[in-house]
Write a protein that binds this DNA or RNA. Structure first.
Length: 197
DNA sequence: AACACGATCTACT
DNA sequence: GTAGATCGTGTTG
């Protein structure tokens, strides 16, 4: 990785989720796997903010599944969905306030061969263009839930590239809270999970 | 113990 | 555009 790359510290995540989410666009999600590092430039995220947000997994209180969202910021919240997919989130805000940013899409940067192995037949721009595909290609599972993202296995890097043009929209795949424009996308990316509506 | 459903994706019409 | 895959979790009985 480049010398100017900087791993995001816990203080980055210990802020309001609606500030953290758009700032994650253009940063690089890295998974240092046992084989080779895989990474992608984040181009689409969604914010899930506390018990007042009806679409947040923590809206109805703490359970075994969502407990990590109630913990300190800068940890991974990964859940299993639809019987076959995983979704990767980063916990934000102070301990006790349940919030997270769902990483929905990224552009592949490092470890292309491993990601192609994990997702056979996918075009490059489709390897990470959705939360389920992103986890599958990058090798992220519920085994990583609770992982400290200031450590060396999974983390986010600022490589000081140009700041993306950001567009917002309604969050995908939810039934309530659709009035909130808490989906943030890089307007110029060809790797979004869906066009911005 | 049984059930309904989900922050998705693919294949097929 | 829409149906089907597939199973852990939370809720209900």
């Amino acid at each position: 990785m480049a010398a100017r790359a900087r791993k995001l510290p816990r203080s980055f995540y210990n802020r309001p989720t609606l500030e953290v989410a758009p700032e994650l666009l253009g940063k690089y999600l890295v998974h240092a796997t046992a084989h080779e590092p895989v990474s992608g430039r984040i181009v689409e995220v969604e914010a899930y903010v506390g018990q007042g947000d009806p679409a947040c997994h923590a809206a109805r209180g703490k359970t075994d599944r969502n407990a990590v969202m109630f913990g300190p910021p800068g940890f991974a919240y990964v859940y299993f969905i639809y019987g076959m997919y995983h979704c990767f989130n980063i916990v934000t805000e102070r301990e006790g306030f349940p919030a997270a940013v769902l990483i929905r899409a990224a552009e592949p940067t490092d470890g292309l061969s491993l990601m192609e192995y994990n997702s056979p037949g996918k075009r490059h721009h489709e390897l990470l263009s959705g939360p389920g595909k992103l986890c599958r290609s990058m090798g992220i599972t519920v085994a990583h839930s609770g992982l400290d993202l200031t450590g060396g296995e999974i983390y986010v890097e600022d490589r000081e590239t140009s700041v993306p043009t950001i567009v917002t929209g309604s969050r995908i795949g939810i039934r309530s809270g659709t009035d909130l424009l808490w989906r943030f996308c890089d307007a110029d990316s060809g790797s979004l999970s869906r066009p911005v509506g």
